[in-house]
Amino acid sequence: MRKLLFFIPFIMFVALSVFLFSGLFSDPRQLDSALMERQVPKFQLPDLMQPSKIWTAAELKGQPYFLNVWGTWCPTCNAELGFLTELRQQGVRIVGLYYVQPLDAAFGETFDINALQQEVQKKLAEQGDPYQFNLVDEHRTLIFDLGVSGAPETFLVDADGVIRAHHVGDINPQNWPELAQAYQQLVRK
């Protein structure tokens, strides 16, 4: 019994070490989305290329898709465009949600959809176009409702419009298999 007591501090030390050591490799950005297993919030957002077309949450239902939050101003998003384009060629459905950064009226910045269209077209021509279409969220309303903290972020949505997976950061060949498995499961349903 006394010997056991003697080892208690040692055991506590080892437990603490393991806990802190595992913390070295955890990614603090990987937070569970509060919207997991919940419906995509209601929205009404224009198509980036044809602003007269207004998309709603209901219209996107029917088949599973990835909702990819991105912007040309975001280097990591640009880096993943190539890989996402490969995925599109394999038949993966990806919808873009364009993250418009806040504009400062004091500096004479105004939202110009035409300039944005040109910029996006140029970028997608360079890097590849993985998107079926893009929603443009000028005031970041859907982005806010989705709890997006930055770009890129990707949500996997099933055919009923329920969010099934959430990924922060770029999608690349290393982390794709896990998402691919989740996607294939939804497709097979």
């Binding site: 603090p28 806040p102 930055g150």
Partner: peptide
């Protein structure tokens, strides 16, 4: 702030913090 973790939204200039402040 979900972006600049360990900062409150009053303190942060991240876009998401600005949006949260406005909301």
């Amino acid at each position: 702030c979900p972006k600049c973790q360990n900062q409150n939204i009053a303190d942060s200039h991240a876009v998401v913090a600005v949006d949260m402040r406005r909301k």
